Simulated scan of single mutants.
Amino acid sequence: MRFEKEENRCPLRRSKDERVLQASVREEKKLLVENSKLKKDIDDLKKLLHDTQKRKAVKLHQERVLTATIASKTALLGETTPLSQTAQSTRSETSSAHTRHDGRRRRERRGLDAAHLNSSESACALMREQKPDVSRLDLRVGRILDVRKHPDSVSLYVQEVELGEPAPRTVVSGLTNHMPPEQLVGRLVVLLCNVRPVKVRGVQSQARLLCAVNQEIMEPLTPPTAAQPGDRITFQNYPGEPEKELNPKQRIWERLQPDLCTDAKGVATYKGVAFEVRGKGLCRAPSISNGGIK
Rank of each mutant, 00 (worst) to 15 (best):
E4D: 06
K5G: 01
R9S: 11
P11C: 07
L12G: 15
R14Y: 14
R14N: 13
K16N: 08
K16P: 00
Q22S: 09
S24E: 11
K30E: 15
L32P: 00
L38F: 06
K47C: 07
Q62V: 15
R64M: 12
T67I: 02
S72P: 01
G78D: 01
G78H: 09
T81C: 11
H98S: 12
R106T: 14
E108S: 13
G111A: 13
A114G: 06
A114W: 07
A115M: 14
A125K: 05
Q130H: 05
Q130F: 06
K131A: 09
D133C: 13
S135Y: 08
L137K: 02
L137W: 09
R140W: 07
V141S: 03
V141N: 03
D146P: 00
V147F: 06
H150W: 11
H150A: 09
S155E: 15
S155D: 15
E160M: 10
E162K: 02
E162C: 05
P168A: 07
R169K: 15
T170S: 04
E182S: 07
Q183C: 06
V189E: 11
V189W: 11
P197T: 00
V200S: 14
G202I: 05
Q204S: 08
S205Q: 06
A212T: 00
A212N: 03
N214H: 03
Q215P: 00
T222K: 13
T225F: 06
A226G: 13
Q228R: 10
P229T: 08
P229W: 05
N237W: 04
P239D: 02
G240N: 10
E243D: 13
E245L: 12
N247E: 15
Q250A: 05
I252Q: 04
D259F: 12
D263S: 03
A264G: 03
G272Q: 09
R278V: 06
K280S: 01
A285D: 00
S289Q: 05
S289Y: 01
N290P: 00
K294A: 12
